[in-house]
């Protein structure tokens, strides 16, 4: 009797274990399934519209054929400007936290705030830039869009720079100090060099992050039907064009939206894979 009860308990435990394992398998398949499904649909829908015209022609009026040239250019210019603005600030702030303020209060406060900025809703960043740049200037502009993107770049770069500089062995710093190198020189010539791959990774991740950002551009850079490199005026960008075209009733526009979506996704995923392999080789 006792043995039967013990056997029953054993079987129940084994059954539970088997179910849990099956659920874990199923959960993983579920997660991977979405990735395959999303990428599959994206390629299926997007690749048909992929042609030279996409890169050579501007966004069309409703019902006409066209490309995404102005949107792609706008995205590239704004991304570059955002990186140019955001990277130095991010790298310097990360440097302070890893090199000067490892144990001071300011650094830990900044770290905490930075982590919050890192996952703060990007639409709020858009509102912020609208308030401080667009409203005073009186019009939407590419500059405002770039600054909004730069605000998103900064926390990403701060985080990776700090992490990567912390990984640089202290013996390198001590060796530099022992030959009389001032601290600033040690950081620029030695610590940066040792952490270069990691810092570049951070910048690539930041580019990946902002090249798909839509929300902060909606009411900063706005949109533009035409090719324009005037950063003081509304500038089109790929994500905003996708947003507008996908929600439109016109079939040509929806098709272009899918193609644009494919372009963005390929860019973003390629960037994050390159970034990952850069640091993987390092470690």
């Amino acid at each position: 009797m006792a043995i039967a009860a013990r056997n029953a308990l054993y079987l129940r435990r084994r059954l539970r274990n088997t179910i849990a394992r099956a659920l874990a398998f199923a959960a993983t398949a579920f997660g991977l399934g979405w990735l395959v499904l999303i990428l599959g649909v994206l390629i299926f829908e997007g690749i048909g519209g992929l042609s030279l015209a996409v890169f050579t022609e501007n966004t069309p009026p409703p019902g006409a054929a066209g490309g995404l040239l102005n949107a792609i250019m706008g995205s590239i210019v704004m991304t570059v400007l955002a990186i140019v603005i955001g990277t130095p600030i991010g790298v310097l702030a990360g440097t302070y936290m890893a090199e000067y303020g490892r144990h001071d209060k300011l650094a830990s406060v900044v770290r905490f705030i930075n982590d919050i900025l890192l996952s703060a809703p990007s639409i709020v960043i858009g509102l912020f830039i609208y308030e401080v740049l667009v409203a005073p200037m009186g019009h939407f502009s590419g500059y405002a869009g770039s600054v909004a993107l730069a605000v998103i770049v900064i926390p990403v770069v701060v985080r990776t720079t700090e992490d990567m500089l912390t990984l640089v062995p202290d013996t390198l710093r001590e060796a530099a100090a022992s030959i009389g190198l001032p601290r600033a020189h040690m950081i620029v010539r030695i610590a940066y060099r040792a952490a270069r791959a990691g810092i570049v990774t951070g910048i690539l991740l930041a580019i990946a992050r902002i090249s798909g950002e839509t929300a902060p551009l909606l009411f900063t850079a706005l949109n533009n039907q035409f090719f324009s490199l005037d950063m003081n005026a509304p500038v089109p960008s790929l994500p905003v064009v996708i947003f507008q075209f996908a929600l439109s009733p016109y079939e040509e526009w929806q098709k272009l939206a899918w193609t644009g979506a494919l372009l963005i996704t390929v860019t973003v995923l390629a960037l994050s894979i390159i970034a990952r392999s850069l640091t993987a080789r390092k470690s």
Partner: peptide, 29 residues
Amino acid sequence: RVSDLAFRGLTRGAALMVLALLSGVILAL
């Protein structure tokens, strides 16, 4: 010595800028 101090000030300023960003967002909103 001057460049050393300047660099330290620069990085500190950048770190403070992160704080300023958050306060700016809250203030603007």
